[in-house]
Design a protein around this nucleic acid. Structure first.
Lengths: 223, 223, 223, 223
DNA sequence: TATGAATGAGTGTTCATTCAT
DNA sequence: CATGAATGAACACTCATTCAT
């Protein structure tokens, strides 16, 4: 349905393709960890090369700059996130099932790939706007389209209220999903979730997620 | 109702209270701009002092560290945000009116104080978790309580569905408000809003906001 | 006998004489402690003023510079050390008694005024030669003269070997005294003493001092 | 006899071993001069790098910190001093000859390596106690042992008075040697020597040294 | 291709000293 | 006379990037 459009998604040099898989993985793994925990500005590319046991010279033969290394990672992360969402959609019976699965997937993704989420958080920051610009055209197109189509189809099928604006609804839904995801990535948002929901209630996460799903569903179904 | 508790919210030294209002304003103004556009890590306190035409020595006689200067600003920002929210609540007839005003206020705040919003965005980042910890107990308590009480009261008055979980509902609402606010602060989220809603529709922002309000209301009222 | 020659021993400004005794004492006390533990270079005059609860402005109305404050202290210390040595000499029956008392006095002085000793150690350092120059003419004249006369008299009285060179003997004696004093001031020399003498033997300090006295006496008396 | 134990005496990074001999020498030479004349605290590592025509970055790729650079130098100096003393001992016929040679060696060492002596003086200072601790176990063990053994052997051979305490005697001897060494390093101790001995007498240094030797010998031999 | 030594502008922070009040 | 806000050069140290091997 939605076609993943790979334009010039190459922020690394050819050399990076030619080196061993092992080296490639090691570089990316270490870089992800460093960027995720220190943020872009406070991460040192020398540190990464040291921790990855790769010479700084090699590093610069793989990536033209710190920025490009960062972009490579971010790029990968986007594809991963989008892919997961697409999987959810494809394996859902209907919009209700889909929303339910998306809430769960948001949490699971954040817990399985906390670093990617933290890096994502970093990018949304104004300071990195010059970086997000370089990803621009393909950044966040899949999810909006996916949600949009999902609602449109549900509307057509008479499953949800025809009066709702599907664009705005998609936006609101994703706002909830995104913030829920963040609530399992950065310590800040973790704390915020705790304040909102209460530590005790968080012990029964299934219950919380049911309430979230209910909130969204109530917003969309006919009265 | 909710009392703003000013604890030891002083991240500056006494000297800062004693200098002229002009210098105080200049320092804060420049610092806010720098932190907002470069992020915490990439902002240089020497730069700030230079741009504010204040010696670096004076800077350190006002604030013990870069971190404290940052915290001072963030602290102020929190009070401002909370104050605005409280004003909205106090001037609202009922929950419906209140939600409507909050959506508008989110946008207006972001547009009037884009820097504060950008700084806020920075704090939520994992890299700055050590900073957000220093603000911990008072951070984000007012809004949750306010929203929580708002819904509880509406429930008691039979205005909203008694079945909804008010904690989760408050959380979802704030997720929408917060992301909406961000959509007018960082370039990243601006772009995201544009992708979701479409540039043309954004020209009639009142319409968009009506749809957002409707989404939230539909989620809460009895069917 | 030996006349203490007070030349221009004033490294402070007149204002320092005019302020209250309490303030004077506080300044000197704090300054001594700071200089003693941090050394001249690493001591901050701002720190001293803060710890003494005296404005930095007052500080500079008392002393023209950090160097002058330091010199004032050193100057006092010299007089104190010399005075103690003179007391010892005046209260001694003969050279044997005197040497014995001097060894004891060295230790006692170091233990009672460890800060003065540490400051003294600092001055002997080449880095502070420009400071010691300013004390030059009266620096260390009393002790040499005193020891020299002591030996000369003993020689005249036939109590010590007439063949020894009294200047060199005085020098060697003072070398022993001085290093012994240091052995109770700086951690470095404390450790060195421990290495030479052994921790157990140091428990009976009287015994050690008897041996030191014996060493010196043996060097001087006729065979 | 006494084995020089080289533990992990490496206060520099591997990179320093790998750079050219010329750079290595230049760094050490300049650093020694700076530390010797300004003292540890007042010496700037940026200054050193400037004067050595080496980038500050290179400096920090050789040594982890200013302290480590200092320790490297000090460490070298200790080995040098100890080695010289050992040479003296090994080339001496007996204790009398040895003492004589040690006095001469003290002066010669101080004159040949005045900077090392000045640096040593700095270390004994209380302010640098945290640094001397890092050298602790091997600091000043060789000389005490050497002197101790020398005296013990002489006692066994009946060459010196059996009643003297060899530990204390070694300590007193070293006090004299050390201070004599200092007398040719720092301006302060130079002046002190002049005051004790008199400028004229200092012109015949051999004579002075003979007197010093006599003082020590007299202290030790049987009457 | 891979290495890592080298660079040097830049960082956060300190501190001796001045001077208006 | 006392105060302490203000100055700014200097410090120890970091790090993105280059380039000879």
């Amino acid at each position: 349905m939605v076609e993943i459009e790979i334009k010039n998604n190459k922020f690394h040099k050819d050399t990076f393709d030619k080196t061993t898989e092992e080296r490639r993985q090691k570089v990316l793994e270490v870089a992800i960890n460093e960027f995720a925990s220190n943020g872009y500005a406070a991460t040192s590319i020398n540190d990464i090369s040291r921790k990855a046991n790769i010479s700084i010279g090699a590093m610069y033969s793989y990536f033209a700059s710190k920025e490009d290394l960062f972009l490579s990672i971010v790029n990968n992360a986007y594809f991963l996130m989008d892919k997961i969402l697409k999987d959810v959609e494809e394996n859902s019976r209907d919009i209700f099932d889909c929303i339910e699965k998306m809430v769960v997937a948001s949490r699971k993704f954040a817990i399985e790939y906390p670093q990617l989420n933290r890096i994502y958080l970093d990018i949304t920051t104004q300071a990195l706007s010059h970086i997000s610009i370089r990803l621009s055209d393909k950044l966040e197109i899949i999810t909006p389209q996916l949600l949009n189509n999902l609602i449109k189809k549900a509307k057509d099928e008479g499953k949800v209220n025809v009066d709702i604006d599907e664009k705005v609804a998609a936006y609101c839904m994703d706002n909830i999903f995104t913030m829920y995801q963040f609530s399992f990535s950065s310590d800040y948002y973790k704390e915020r979730l705790k304040i909102y929901i209460g530590e005790d209630k968080l012990n029964d996460i299934a219950e919380v997620e049911k309430s979230i799903v209910n909130f969204i569903l109530a917003a969309m179904i006919k009265k």
